[in-house]
Each structure stands twice: as C-alpha cells, then as structure tokens.
Simulated scan of single mutants.
Amino acid sequence: MKWLRRDFHLASTAVDLVADEILSLRVTDHVFESGLVVGEESVTSIVMPDDRAAGLGTDDTEFVAAMRERCDEALETAGTIDLRTPPRSRVYETLADTFGSEVEDDFRAMLEAVESTRSGGYGNSDGDALDEVELTLLAAAIHGIQLYEISKWGEDVGVASKATFSRAKTQLEDQGVIATEKVPIDVGRPRLRLKIGDDRLRDVEAADLPITARELLASPPAETGG
C-alpha cells in the first residue's frame, strides 16, 4: 500500500476503480509467501526478477481450492485501507471546472504520457519522474495560472498541500523550468503568476513536456525569454 501511495499515477486510478466497485483493497496480517493472483480455477504466483515480472501458475484443483480457502480466511479479518489519494476522474473534473478544459487536457496528456510519477519513471532508470505536483505546475505555467490558485485547488481536491506546491515551484523555478511574475493585489503581498521558464519548452506538445522537462532538469538552464 505504501508503494502504491507513492505513485499518483497508479493510486488515483486504483481509487477510481474502488469507487466503481471494480476493485477492493484490504490489508491483512496473514503472511503470504509471494504476490498471488487467485482466481476461480487457477493460482498465479508473481515473480519479479530485476525490473521485470512474470507469472507462474497452476490449475491443480485441490491446490486452487486450498488457496482460495486460505484467502477467504484472510479476507474475513482484513481491514480496509485509505490510499489518501483523490480519484483520477475527480482531479480531471475539478481541474476543468476551475481552470477550463484546456488546462485539464494538458494535465491529462502529461499524466497519461508517463508510466509512473515515482522515481525512475518513463521507463528510464537514469532519471527521476516528475510527480503529480510538478506536472500540475507545468500545466498551470502553460496557461499563466497563479501559484495561489493552483495550490489552493490542489489542496482542496487532495493532490497535495499548498506548502508542497510552493516547494515544488521553488525547485522548478531554481532550475529554470518555470518562471514567475508578480501580480499586484489590493491588500497583502503580490501573488505569483506561473510561466514557462525555458524557451526550449515553449513549443513542446503537452504529452512530450514531462520527458523534455526531465532532460532539461539534468542539464544547465538555458537563457529564458520574456
């Protein structure tokens, strides 16, 4: 569950499946020797050498029946678990309602283009994946949305806290991926409008932005435009 929580890409999809009653997630103290897929007529053990996975299965009737009985016993005492992640559908819906369909489209394209939002995503172990907060900030920067507005949305919907958005903004800004400009308000400190910070990102399609930004983060910042 901890592994699943750390990947918004997977966790938000899982929460949608739970809401649709396609999937249920339980936690149990019963010890199983390996990851298992227990079906009506077969049992498959998941084997993961290195970064690959394979299934070793059996359809032996007595073995399958015994394993199903063991799983049923575990489920009787298993507790439910909260992934503390908003459903992917709710993220898309509220993003469109708050900022417009174009922002939602760009965020959706970026999130669906990546394989994972945890370290080592994009199928590339040479670099870290951008997470859901950084992808949200990129979408906001494309459309000139204020940091206050996007971080408030993110906190309200359950993506991350305002403080997390602020830290991510600072890191991306320090590395030249995004930039900010001050927006005066009647009372209080000026707010910050997000912009794309590196000229090499300006004409990149949304689906290609995560990997392009990741490559730029690994290289010295280029000169930024106005």
Results as ranks from 00 to 15, higher is better:
residue 2 K to Y: 08
residue 3 W to E: 15
residue 4 L to H: 03
residue 13 T to P: 00
residue 15 V to H: 02
residue 16 D to L: 02
residue 23 L to R: 06
residue 32 F to W: 06
residue 37 V to W: 11
residue 38 V to I: 10
residue 41 E to S: 10
residue 43 V to S: 06
residue 47 V to A: 14
residue 50 D to M: 05
residue 53 A to Q: 12
residue 55 G to Q: 12
residue 57 G to K: 07
residue 57 G to R: 08
residue 58 T to F: 15
residue 58 T to S: 12
residue 60 D to R: 10
residue 62 E to G: 09
residue 66 A to N: 15
residue 66 A to Q: 14
residue 70 R to W: 05
residue 71 C to K: 12
residue 73 E to I: 04
residue 73 E to D: 14
residue 75 L to I: 01
residue 77 T to N: 10
residue 78 A to L: 03
residue 81 I to Q: 13
residue 81 I to W: 13
residue 85 T to C: 12
residue 85 T to Y: 07
residue 93 E to H: 11
residue 94 T to L: 11
residue 96 A to C: 10
residue 101 S to Y: 04
residue 101 S to W: 10
residue 102 E to G: 06
residue 103 V to N: 04
residue 106 D to L: 08
residue 106 D to E: 09
residue 107 F to N: 12
residue 109 A to Q: 06
residue 111 L to S: 02
residue 112 E to F: 05
residue 112 E to M: 03
residue 120 G to A: 00
residue 123 G to M: 00
residue 124 N to Q: 07
residue 130 L to S: 00
residue 131 D to H: 01
residue 135 L to A: 01
residue 137 L to H: 08
residue 150 I to M: 15
residue 152 K to F: 11
residue 152 K to N: 13
residue 157 V to T: 13
residue 160 A to L: 03
residue 160 A to N: 08
residue 165 F to A: 06
residue 170 T to M: 10
residue 173 E to L: 02
residue 177 V to Y: 01
residue 181 E to M: 03
residue 181 E to L: 08
residue 185 I to Q: 14
residue 188 G to S: 02
residue 188 G to M: 03
residue 189 R to Y: 11
residue 190 P to I: 01
residue 190 P to E: 14
residue 191 R to P: 00
residue 194 L to D: 05
residue 199 D to M: 08
residue 201 L to H: 04
residue 201 L to A: 05
residue 207 A to V: 11
residue 208 D to E: 11
residue 214 R to A: 13
residue 216 L to S: 13
residue 218 A to L: 10
residue 218 A to W: 02
residue 219 S to T: 13
residue 219 S to P: 00
residue 220 P to W: 05
residue 222 A to E: 14
residue 225 G to M: 10
